[in-house]
């Protein structure tokens, strides 16, 4: 969607055209859900995050000055929401351990892995499972940079704009992410597809 078309759609939405907003959501939802899915690892949370991003976009439309494209704005919001999501998950895990410090068994290890439910993962098979596990080793920032570069094909400059980071920092995150993946997937190279 080019900038001129985007501007026309935004004007229509601001005039109360609900159909235009629905069309905008429809046009961006696959990529937005996809990014969130790769970031959090399961579809349910990914759809919730994508939905929240679109709701925030709708709330911000009146003040949307067009400094960035809608897709950049959405990528930025989804990345922030997934970082918050990971922070919350981490905290929940801490509280969980804190509460069961005296228990003989490790309750978190016994709990079902939500990312492993059948049909829920976007990568199937052993290789896909290994890749998902390898991606989990990346920090949230590294994961965001790698996803935006490798899967979304965004140039580094745009990634820097999306994540509000220096371009040098983005390069550094990308380099570290690839080093970790290389280490984790050493024995699978050439057999991931």
């Amino acid at each position: 969607m080019d900038a001129a078309t985007e501007k026309i759609i935004l004007d229509r939405i601001c005039d109360g055209d609900e159909a235009s907003f629905e069309a905008l959501v429809r046009a961006h939802s696959a990529r937005v859900i996809g990014l969130a899915w790769r970031m959090v690892g399961n579809r349910e949370d990914a759809e919730d995050i994508a939905q929240e991003a679109f709701i925030r976009l709708h709330r911000s439309l009146a003040s949307f000055r067009g400094d960035s494209s809608i897709s950049t704005w959405l990528y930025r919001t989804v990345t922030r929401l997934t970082i918050d999501h990971h922070r919350r998950q981490k905290l929940k895990r801490k509280i969980f351990f804190f509460r069961h410090a005296d228990a003989e068994y490790d309750p978190y290890e016994l709990a079902a892995d939500p990312a492993a439910s059948p049909g829920d993962q976007y990568l199937a098979g052993e290789a896909g499972h290994r890749l998902s596990r390898a991606v989990e080793k990346l920090s949230v920032q590294q994961r965001a940079v790698f996803n935006l570069r490798h899967h979304e094909d965004l140039p580094l400059k745009e990634i820097a704009a999306v994540l509000k980071l220096e371009e040098g920092t983005v390069k550094s995150h990308l380099h570290r992410a690839v080093c970790i993946l290389r280490k984790e997937l050493k024995d699978l190279q050439g057999g991931l597809t």
Binding site: A30, H150, H151, D153, L192
Partner: peptide
């Protein structure tokens, strides 16, 4: 080596 790894990581959109 880099090419082998990154070409093998499928670019997937769910």
């Amino acid at each position: 080596e880099l090419q082998k790894l990154l070409d093998a990581v499928p670019v997937l959109t769910p």
